[in-house]
């Protein structure tokens, strides 16, 4: 469990993190979301004890980070932003070194290093120098370093940046698996990633928490209208009167005219009613041909943009 109480971080006069509080329960995969410079990395650096907050308290697994850092740090595996590694060491040496400084017991060390190398798919390169590895492998080495001490909490700062699509899906599924046995905090500015992996999301902007919720709830929070997009060919101009024929329609709004003569409309229905079937049959009777019909889906992207922009006002 991780708890932040009124945590503030100032760099000189610049407020990087402004009085944030939240709680992460065991077994959650928490996504930290925000535009660049929102304070994601700063928050993570404070949770891991790399920097000290100007104000406030951070409690990791029951230990106060500023008072009992040793105990608190032992529970955390951290993969920092930009995957810093000792490029002069070989993969296995690096992972062993991480096990040593994380104070893994001497007896278990060898087994744990072997196990984590296998888990992260590094067996083929374990005797290579880190500086000769590709970006994707470096990322895995960094992850292996974070995992080797078998920490309860995993903190991953932008774990998929700079990877190719195949590697991204691999890392994502790895994180999802890890989430079954660990508490995970990951930061990202890729929204689809967060909505795929995380059980809860914290959106921060300019050092302040804008929202904390599950990805689904965040999407629902923004989508309060029940809208359908249709593209139609309407030779007899009957769209203007369609509202009178279907009673559940609240509003019909013209969006644009396409090059092929079709027109796009947004139809807003009353809450809780799916109008698609009615539209299909009624439009046919009116001799309006439907080219395309789509229920408007709000994504986390919309939620994110709305919340961030809302914060500005």
């Amino acid at each position: 469990m991780i708890e932040l109480k009124n945590v503030t971080k100032k760099y000189g006069k610049v407020l990087a993190v402004d009085d944030i509080s939240f709680k992460i329960e065991d077994g959650e995969i928490m996504g930290l979301l925000g535009p660049n410079g929102a304070g994601k990395s700063t928050t993570m650096n404070m949770i891991t004890g790399f920097i000290e907050p100007t104000d406030g308290e951070i409690i990791v697994d029951g230990y106060d980070m500023s008072r009992r850092p040793k105990k608190a740090k032992r529970e955390i595996g951290y993969m920092p932003e930009g995957v810093p590694l000792y490029s002069d060491l070989k993969v296995k040496e690096f992972v062993t070194y991480m096990a040593e400084i994380k104070q893994v017991r001497r007896k278990e060390r060898k087994d744990k290093v072997e196990k984590v190398i296998k888990e992260t798919g590094l067996s083929d390169v374990k005797n290579k120098l880190i500086k000769n590895l590709s970006r994707g492998y470096k990322q895995r080495v960094s992850l292996a370093g974070a995992l080797v001490s078998d920490p309860k909490i995993l903190i991953l700062d932008e774990p998929t940046v700079g990877l190719d699509p195949k590697q991204i899906t691999e890392i994502r599924s790895l994180i999802k698996d890890l989430g079954k046995t660990h508490t995970v905090i990951l930061s990202s500015h890729i929204l689809s990633e967060v909505s795929q992996i995380c059980t809860r999301v914290i959106i921060i902007n300019k050092g302040k928490i804008v929202a904390i919720d599950t990805p689904e709830n965040l999407e629902n929070r923004v989508s309060n209208k029940n809208c359908i997009y249709v593209t139609v060919e309407d030779k007899e101009n009957k769209m203007d009167t369609i509202k009178d024929r279907i009673k559940d329609i609240q509003k019909v709004e013209f969006v644009e005219k396409n090059e092929d003569g079709t027109k796009q409309y947004v139809i807003e229905a009353k809450q809780g009613i799916d109008l698609r079937k009615t539209i299909f049959s009624e439009f046919a009777k009116e001799n309006i041909t439907i080219f395309e019909m789509k229920k408007a889906d709000t994504t986390l992207e919309d939620a994110f943009m709305k919340l961030i922009e809302g914060g500005k006002k």
Partner: peptide
């Protein structure tokens, strides 16, 4: 890499 060192116990 100091992040690795300083976040260790």
């Amino acid at each position: 890499t100091e992040q690795l060192l300083l976040t260790s116990p």
